[in-house]
C-alpha cells in the first residue's frame, strides 16, 4: 500500500511505485475478505466504523490533500448522512439501503451546494473557520429542534434491507452486522475508493492539484479556481454523506455529537495520521485511529491524552503521517510548508 502518492507524476513512475504497493493492497483486501471467518465478532464490529470512516476520509482528503483546503466542519456532512438513514428508516418507511445511500448522497450534495459556494470563496484559516461555523450551526439545529431531530438524544436507526435480500431479524443484529452488512460496507468502500482513484487521476484531479499548488497561476491557465473548489467540496460532502449513512446502522442511533466540532477535528486527525499526501493514507489513518482507540480504552479511559500526544508527534515529527514514514518520504510538500500571510485571501 506504500504510496501512489498525491503528486504521482506519470504512468511510468506510477507503475514503479505501485508494484510493492499493489501487493500490500491485495493482501489488505484479502484480509478484509477472510476476516469474518477467523476474527472474533468484536473486532468485526470495529471494522464497520472503519469502512464508514474510510469513505468519509477519502472524500475529506480530496479537499485537504488534493485541493489544499482544510475543513474543520466536515462532520456536518457525515451527520447529514447518518440522520438521513435514521429519518428514512423511522419516518419515511424506506427499507432499501441502496435507496437510503442514494438519498444520503443527494441530501449531502444539496446541503453542500450553497455552503460550498460560500466557503470556497475563502482559503486557509478563513475556510476552516467558515466550515467550522456551518458545522456548529447544524449542531445547534440538531440540539434545539427536538421535534425533528430528537434533540441531544438523537434518533434511532430502524430496520433496513440490503439489496432487498438481507435484513436483520430481531435478536440477530450482531450476526447481521458482522455478516452481510460487513461485506456490504466493505464493498461500498471498495467501489467508492475505485471511483475516487479515478477522480484524482482525471483531468479534474489534475486541475485540483494545480489549484492547491498555485491558484493564481491556475487561473491564468484558464482553470476556474472557485468552480473546481466547489465541485471538490460537493464531492467530498457526498462521500461524507455516504460514509455517515454507513455509520448509522452500526451505532443504531444517531446523535448530535456526530457533528460536533471535535468530531470534525478527529476526522482531520485521521487524515493526517495516515498521511494526506497519499491516496491510501486516510484509510490507514482511520484503521489505526479506530483500533488504537479501542486498545487504549480497554486499558485506560484516557485515550484523548494518548491521542493528543500522538497527534502532536505526527504534526511535529512526521507531518506526512504513517504513509510518509512507510514510504520514507517524510518531507512535506511545498504548499504545506510555505507560510502565507494571514488574511482573507479571496480565491481570485
Amino acid at each position: 500500500m506504500a504510496g501512489p502518492a498525491v503528486a504521482q507524476t506519470s504512468p511510468r513512475a506510477g507503475a514503479r511505485a505501485f508494484a510493492p504497493g499493489a501487493w500490500v493492497l491485495a493482501l489488505a483486501v484479502l484480509a478484509v475478505l477472510v476476516a469474518p471467518l477467523v476474527v472474533s465478532p468484536y473486532y468485526l464490529t470495529k471494522m464497520l466504523p472503519f469502512f464508514a470512516y474510510g469513505v468519509v476520509l477519502l472524500g475529506l482528503n480530496l479537499l485537504v490533500g488534493y485541493t489544499g483546503l482544510l475543513s474543520f466542519g466536515h462532520a456536518l456532512f457525515l451527520g447529514v448522512g447518518a440522520y438521513t438513514v435514521s429519518v428514512a428508516t423511522t419516518r419515511l418507511e424506506i427499507r432499501s439501503f441502496e435507496v437510503i445511500l442514494l438519498l444520503a448522497a443527494l441530501t449531502a450534495a444539496i446541503v453542500a451546494a450553497p455552503i460550498g459556494a460560500l466557503c470556497v470563496r475563502y482559503v486557509k484559516i478563513y475556510f476552516g473557520m467558515l466550515t467550522l461555523a456551518f458545522g456548529m450551526l447544524f449542531y445547534s439545529f440538531l440540539i434545539k429542534f427536538y421535534a425533528v431531530t430528537g434533540g441531544d438524544q438523537g434518533l434511532r436507526v430502524a430496520q433496513h434491507s440490503l439489496l432487498g435480500l438481507f435484513e436483520a431479524r430481531s435478536g440477530e443484529r450482531v450476526r447481521f452486522l458482522t455478516g452481510q452488512f460487513y461485506y456490504y460496507a466493505a464493498a461500498v468502500l471498495a467501489i467508492l475508493a475505485l471511483v475516487m482513484w479515478r477522480i484524482v487521476r482525471s483531468p479534474f484531479g489534475l486541475c485540483l492539484r494545480s489549484i492547491r499548488d498555485n491558484p493564481e497561476k491556475a487561473e491564468y491557465l484558464g482553470v476556474s479556481v472557485r468552480r473546481h473548489r466547489w465541485y471538490a467540496f460537493m464531492l467530498s460532502a457526498v462521500y461524507a454523506g455516504i460514509g455517515g449513512a454507513l455509520l448509522g446502522p452500526v451505532t443504531g442511533q444517531v446523535d448530535p455529537t456526530l457533528v460536533y466540532w471535535t468530531h470534525s477535528g478527529n476526522l482531520v486527525f485521521m487524515v493526517l495520521l495516515g498521511g494526506f499526501t497519499s491516496f491510501f493514507g486516510p484509510l490507514l489513518g482511520a484503521f489505526v485511529f479506530i483500533f488504537l482507540q479501542d486498545q487504549i480504552m480497554s486499558v485506560v479511559p484516557y485515550w484523548r491524552l494518548v491521542f493528543g500526544a500522538i497527534l502532536a508527534a505526527i504534526v511535529i515529527f512526521a507531518p506526512t503521517g504513517l504513509m510518509g514514514l512507510l514510504s520514507q518520504r517524510p518531507t512535506l510538500p511545498r504548499w504545506a510548508v510555505l507560510r502565507q500571510a494571514p488574511g482573507p485571501e479571496h480565491a481570485n
Partner: peptide
C-alpha cells in the same frame, strides 16, 4: 509554478 506537479503535468493543466 506548481511545485508538486511534474513538468508534463504543469503543461497538461
Amino acid at each position: 509554478i506548481f511545485p508538486e506537479l511534474s513538468v508534463l503535468e504543469a503543461i497538461q493543466v
